[in-house]
Amino acid sequence: MTEGARPSMYETVRDHENDLKEHRERITTLEDITMALKESDRQHDERLNKLEDNAVKLENTIMVENRETRNTMKEQTEKLFGIVEKAMGYQSSEAEYRHEQKMAKINTWANVFLKIIGGLTAVGGIGYLIIQHFLNQVGGN
């Protein structure tokens, strides 16, 4: 380079070559980074798609399990309701049986009482007729 003067054409060309070399290196680096970012984006998109697919599968599994659980609970509830109905029917039948037994007992005692009273009345009536007959014979003769 000459002093105080502009750089020579050779130096300018050499500086430009160096600048071009640096720019090529930078461009190559940027292209490599761009390719790496594109690959990273592609991998990220794949992972995101897999996550979405897994989320859909999980949702479907939960829906199936929920349906099965509801069916099981419905069946169990129906069985328990049947057991409760039978128990209530048994209690109702037992109450009816006790009532009928009590009524039969009262009816039996009423029949016995009426027969005894009827028998005493009949015996009393016959006894009265016999006594009246004797009194008429004794008093009449």
Rank of each mutant, 00 (worst) to 15 (best):
K21N: 05
N141I: 07
T29K: 09
P7A: 06
I126Y: 10
I106N: 08
T72K: 15
E94S: 11
I130Q: 03
A36L: 11
H16I: 13
V84Y: 06
M88G: 01
L129C: 15
A5S: 07
K102V: 06
R6S: 10
E100V: 02
K21R: 10
T34K: 15
V56P: 00
N111G: 01
E17H: 14
N60D: 14
L51P: 01
R70N: 11
D32V: 06
K105D: 10
D41N: 13
A104W: 04
T69E: 13
H16W: 05
F113P: 00
S92A: 10
I62W: 07
S92T: 04
V64R: 09
E46K: 15
D32F: 03
T12N: 01
R67M: 09
E17Y: 11
N18C: 00
D15S: 10
T2R: 11
K102F: 10
G118Y: 02
Q132I: 02
G4N: 10
A87T: 06
E39H: 11
Q76F: 05
N66H: 05
L37N: 12
I27E: 13
D53W: 05
A87K: 09
A5C: 03
E75Y: 03
E39G: 13
G119Y: 04
K115Q: 13
V84G: 00
R47W: 04
E94C: 03
A122I: 09
T121G: 15
K50Y: 03
K86R: 14
L135M: 04
Q137H: 06
K105G: 06
D53N: 13
A104V: 03
I126T: 14
K50C: 04
